[in-house]
Each structure stands twice: as structure tokens, then as C-alpha cells.
Design a protein around this nucleic acid. Structure first.
Lengths: 231, 231
DNA sequence: TGTACATCAGTGAACGCGCGTTCACTGATGTAC
DNA sequence: TGTACATCAGTGAACGCGCGTTCACTGATGTAC
């Protein structure tokens, strides 16, 4: 018998009705079930109202009092995942020693989280790209454009994770270990490289990636954060 | 009236039947229509057999003699897109002068292609991530895992583009302009950074990205390719 | 203390939609004799 | 030269499925009087 983070039962046939006043627990179970589906299938696509309901053992319409639609569920999932990612960076940093060690270890924590949880990491960012305003061969009439409504919140939610990287670089600058003159720009470069590493590595596992991953990440970070005196 | 690359008509109501012996033209039109859908919607998801057929003006079953299934269509689309990406890199390189200039310009061409054609670039790589063998909170029974069948070919198709980057770095090494001792590993680092730049930039356009993009890319490449004497 | 009532936390059937896929078919065009 | 036939390049109707969403409903539990 599986038990959700909130303690109520999940996925074992018909679910036991929450006690009066505890209706909100279903909200957590819905988010957990959506995350479970993402992990099992590797894609957000699998999160349909009916699949979520099936996973929990409720009727599909029971979701409506808790979430307006599919996007609202995904938004809650993304919020939970960004917390996990931030925690992974912090846990990494805690294992570093001096500022450079902390920066590198934090970035390794980021990449390790993505590598070990590819489905979770992949769910963090919107997969739908907006049509270019003038995509070649494109028709004049662009048609109904549905920007994923979970696009903007990613920025707010990801700000903390990004801030950790920038702060770690700033600490290196302050310690005289980095020649960077702009922690934000160089933090952006580091972030972009970490993201590319996670997404390409997990998307193309058959590519001859340099092993071990930690050493590869370390080199990336030392270069892009302009570290002058590596620990 | 729109005309496909092969000269036959596309999307204008009922399509005119191909002449005897020219049946293969429909194959190209199917791929073009799938690409058109991807560009218009920003996601491969929109490529359904029925949507493709609607786009061309044929009946849905008419696709079967040309493609076994949806994945076969997408595979053909990806092949076409990798050629475009490779061309973009080559066009960039052609605008560079010395080895370092060519490397940087080629990478700028890569990123420019991705930025200007986010839907096309996004379609190049499989969006589905494989479930981790031991995703946390995951159940013991993993369930039916559908690895996107377009996963492996990406490697072969992308090999040429990746090779261009590696060769450009090798040229820099040979010219004494790079302290790299492993063009493949450093090429991987560059590729990962370019990929991260394109995907994050287009996914999160509201992020305060450093402008101009070309200068950002240039810095990334100079650092990761260990260029010692920038042009 | 008893009881009527309100509220909570859902259920179950039904709708219309787009999808992949199958099946038997159609009509133009080339070719063998 | 005529004509029967094979082939090509598709069509149109139909199937069963999962989906989002709606609607009226149910049954347990707390609360006012």
C-alpha cells in the first residue's frame, strides 16, 4: 500500500474518502499522482485528468474542486520540482569547502539531480516553443498560438536556483578566486551549460560522453566562472 | 496557393492527384506538412496523421503507403532539420576568417538557427526522457516504457554537426590558438553550452539575457574551447 | 438530548471530440496483345 | 489500331479508444435549535 506525503492512501483501487475538513489532502495527492505519471512515462504529456484520477482511485470530475484544469496541476508539480532542484544545489554546496569548492559542488548537485531524475528535470521547463514570428516557410496567418501557461512562473520559481549559482560565483569573486567581473552574466553562462549538459546527456545517453560527469561539470564551471585558483 | 518544395500543391482544399509514377511526391509533402505543423504550434505533439492529412488535403489513410506511422514521419522531419542545422553552421563558418573566427562564427550560426527557428530546433531532439531506473518515489513495477523510436537516429544525424565543431576546435589547436588537448571533450562542452543557450533562451524569453546573443556565445566558445589568442 | 438541516467530499453516466487504423472501394493511366 | 487488364494513387465510411467537461446525484458528518 502506497502512502502519499500527506499520509492518505494512493492508487490502491478505490480510495478512502477524506474526513470532513481534510478535503485539501486530495490536492497533494493529485500533485503526487501527476508527478508519479511523469516519472513513469518520462513526459508531462501523460498527465491527463483521467490518468491522474485513475492513479489516485477517484472519479475524474473530483479533480475540479481542487484544480481548474490540467495546467494548474502541472504548475503545482513544477513548483514542487523547483524546490527539489534548489535543495539538490544546496545539498551539493554544503559538501564543498571554500567558495570554489562550494560553487563546483553546487553545480554538480544540480547536474546530478537532473541525471538521476531525468523525467523530473525535464518537467521543470516548458517543452513547447513559441512559434517564431517569422518562421521560414510559415504562413502569414499564424493560427491560434497557445503559449503554455506554465511558462512565466518558471522564471519566478527558478529564480532561487539561479540566485544560488550567482551568489556562489560572487563568493568566489570576493575570495579573489575568480576573475569574473559580472557574476550574473557568468552565472547565466554556467546555468546554460549545466542545463545543456543535463538535457543532452539524458536525451542522448548513447553519445560518447566524457566520464565521469562530475569532472566534466567541474571543468565547465571552472572555465565559465573564470576561476583563477581552483581549490 | 502554396506550393511544396517538390512543386505539387499543398493545403489548398482538395489536392490534385499526382501523376502516375509521381506518387513519391506525396512523401515530401507529408514531411513538409509535418514541419509546417511543428512550426505553427511549436511542438511535435501536433503532428498527428489526421492533422498532416488535413494540411495537405488528402484522406488520412493515404499516408500509410508512404510512412508506416507517425514516428516514421517525424524521423524524416528530423533528418531534414539536421541538414538545415548543419548548413547553418557551415554558413556561419564561411563568414569567419582565421580558425578562431571560423569556430566562433560557426557556433554563432548554430545558436542563431536555434533562436530564429525555435520550433524547428526543439524538434531536433527527443523531448521524452527515459524514466530513471530508480526514480525516487517510483513504484517497483515500472510499467510500459516507450522509448521514443526517434532517439537513436539523432546521434547519427547529429554527428555531422558535432563533427564540424570538433574540427573547428582542432583547427584552432593546430594553429596554436587553443590550449585544448582534447578537441572532442572540449567540443562536447561547447555543444552542451550552445544547446543550453538555445533551449533556455527560447523557453524563457523573459529572463534577463545578456545582449547581444552573439557576444554571449562568443564568450562561451572562447572559454570552453580554451582559446588563447582570440582573433 | 433529539432531530432537522447544511455542508463537505466526492460519484457515475453521459456528451462530443480527435485520434489511429481497417476495410472495401474508385477512377485514371499505362501496357500487353 | 483497338481493347482488356493491371497498376497506381488514392478515397470514404466505420471501428473503438481516451480525452475534457457537464450534470444531477449520494452519503457521511457536523451543527443549530
Amino acid at each position: 500500500m502506497k502512502v502519499s506525503a500527506t499520509g492518505s492512501k494512493v492508487a490502491a483501487g478505490r480510495r478512502q474518502r477524506n474526513a470532513r475538513g481534510q478535503g485539501a489532502r486530495l490536492s497533494d495527492d493529485i500533485v503526487s499522482a501527476a508527478l508519479e505519471l511523469i516519472c513513469r512515462t518520462g513526459t508531462k504529456e501523460s498527465v491527463t485528468l483521467r490518468a491522474v484520477a485513475r492513479e489516485i482511485g477517484i472519479a475524474a470530475p473530483s479533480i475540479y474542486p481542487h484544480f481548474a484544469d490540467r495546467d494548474a496541476i502541472l504548475m503545482a508539480v513544477v513548483a514542487r520540482l523547483f524546490n527539489e532542484l534548489t535543495d539538490a544545489i544546496k545539498a551539493g554546496e554544503a559538501g564543498g569547502g571554500d567558495p570554489v569548492g562550494r560553487l563546483v559542488a553546487g553545480c554538480e548537485g544540480y547536474v546530478r539531480y537532473g541525471m538521476e531524475n531525468p523525467a523530473r528535470y525535464g518537467a521543470l521547463f516548458p517543452s513547447q516553443r513559441p512559434p517564431a514570428t517569422a518562421d521560414d516557410h510559415g504562413p502569414v496567418e499564424i493560427g491560434p498560438v497557445e503559449i503554455g501557461s506554465d511558462r512565466q512562473p518558471v522564471l519566478e520559481l527558478g529564480a532561487e536556483a539561479f540566485g544560488l549559482v550567482v551568489d556562489a560565483i560572487s563568493a568566489c569573486i570576493d575570495a579573489g578566486a575568480s576573475s569574473s567581473t559580472d557574476a550574473v552574466v557568468d552565472g547565466t553562462a554556467v546555468w546554460v551549460a549545466l542545463h545543456g549538459t543535463v538535457t543532452l546527456w539524458t536525451a542522448l545517453p548513447a553519445f560518447p560522453w566524457p566520464e565521469p560527469a562530475d569532472a566534466f561539470v567541474r571543468q565547465l564551471v571552472l572555465s565559465l566562472a573564470k576561476i583563477t585558483s581552483p581549490a
